[in-house]
Nucleic acid binder design. Structure first.
Length: 245
DNA sequence: TGGAATGTTGGAAC
DNA sequence: CGTTCCAACATTCC
C-alpha cells in the first residue's frame, strides 16, 4: 500500500467525499477518539508523501498506512476497521491496519510542502540544498529521508538509483552535482511513472531493479543487500551503477 | 507454513 | 543528555 504514489491514487479516489458530512465514525483506533468526526463536514483531502490527510474545519485526521495498511471505499473487509466513516449520503470510507492521529495545528506549520515529492509545491532546488547538508550520508539513506523526499519508499529508491546508474552506497559529498541533480529529478519523474503503472496494475512488470535478479543493461546478476541506516532491501547492479566514494 | 515485505515509532541501551 | 539500536505493530503473499 505505502509509497507516495499509492496515496495519490487514494486521494483521487476519495476526492468525491469532500463536502460531505460524517454521520457516523467508528473503529478500533487507540490513539484517536474518532467520534470527533461525527456531524462534521469533510472540508478537504490532502496528502504529504505517505500521509493521507482528512481535513475538517478545526482539525485533521492523519492516516499513515505503514507497511500493511489498506482501505476500502464503499466496501468493507472481514477484519475490523481502524477507522470507518459513514457519510450523509450513505457512502463510506474504511481504513484498516493503519496509524491514525488527530492533528489540531495548522498543516502549513506542520508540513514542508516543498518536500512532497509528488506535490505541486515540490522544490528540487530546496531538495538539493537539503541533501548537500548531509555530505557523509549514503544516497540510499538520503532518498528515504521523508523530510527531503516525502513519499519515497524502498521501491522508488531502488528504481531511481538503478535508472540513474548510481550505486546505493555512494556518499553524497562524492557524487558530482550534476549526477545528484539528476537523481533528484528522476525521483520526482519516477514517482509519477510509478503512479501511472500502479493505476494500470502493471507496476511490478516495470521494475528494473527492485526484486529483480538480472540487470537488464548488462545481464549481470543484481546484488541484493540490506543497506543503510535502516537496513532496507537494496537491489543494484555492481557493474553499471557507479560508486561515488 | 514460516518468513519476509512498499514503514515508522518509541523506548531501551549505551 | 544525545545518539543508536531494536522490538513492536499490522497484513498479505509466496
Amino acid at each position: 500500500m505505502p509509497e507516495g504514489p499509492s496515496i495519490v491514487i487514494l486521494k483521487e479516489q476519495a476526492l468525491s467525499f469532500v463536502g460531505k458530512e460524517v454521520v457516523k465514525a467508528a473503529g478500533n483506533s487507540k490513539t484517536t477518539n474518532v467520534k470527533v468526526c461525527e456531524n462534521k463536514v469533510l472540508v478537504d483531502i490532502k496528502s504529504w508523501g505517505k500521509h493521507f490527510l482528512l481535513c475538517f474545519e478545526d482539525f485533521t485526521i492523519k492516516i499513515h498506512f505503514l507497511l500493511f495498511g489498506t482501505y476500502r471505499i464503499n466496501q468493507e473487509k472481514e477484519t475490523p476497521p481502524r477507522l470507518s466513516l459513514l457519510f450523509n449520503d450513505g457512502s463510506k470510507l474504511n481504513f484498516y491496519g493503519c496509524s491514525i492521529l488527530l492533528i489540531e495545528e495548522s498543516l502549513d506549520e506542520l508540513y514542508d510542502w516543498s518536500a512532497d515529492a509528488m506535490g505541486v509545491g515540490w522544490d528540487a532546488n530546496k531538495a538539493y540544498k537539503k541533501v548537500t547538508q548531509y555530505p557523509q550520508a549514503l544516497i540510499c539513506d538520503i532518498l528515504l529521508d521523508q523530510n527531503i523526499f516525502s513519499g519515497v519508499g524502498n521501491i522508488i529508491k531502488n528504481e531511481v538509483l538503478f535508472r540513474c546508474m548510481v550505486h546505493p552506497e555512494s556518499r553524497v559529498e562524492k557524487i558530482p552535482a550534476k549526477v545528484l541533480k539528476l537523481v533528484i529529478e528522476e525521483t520526482r519523474n519516477y514517482c509519477f511513472q510509478f503512479l501511472e503503472w500502479k493505476k494500470e496494475f502493471t507496476l511490478k512488470k516495470h521494475w528494473l531493479a527492485h526484486d529483480k535478479k538480472i540487470c537488464s543493461r548488462d545481464q549481470m546478476p543484481l546484488a541484493k543487500q540490506y543497506l543503510g541506516k535502516t537496513n532496507r532491501r537494496t537491489f543494484y547492479c555492481a557493474k553499471c551503477q557507479k560508486v561515488y566514494a
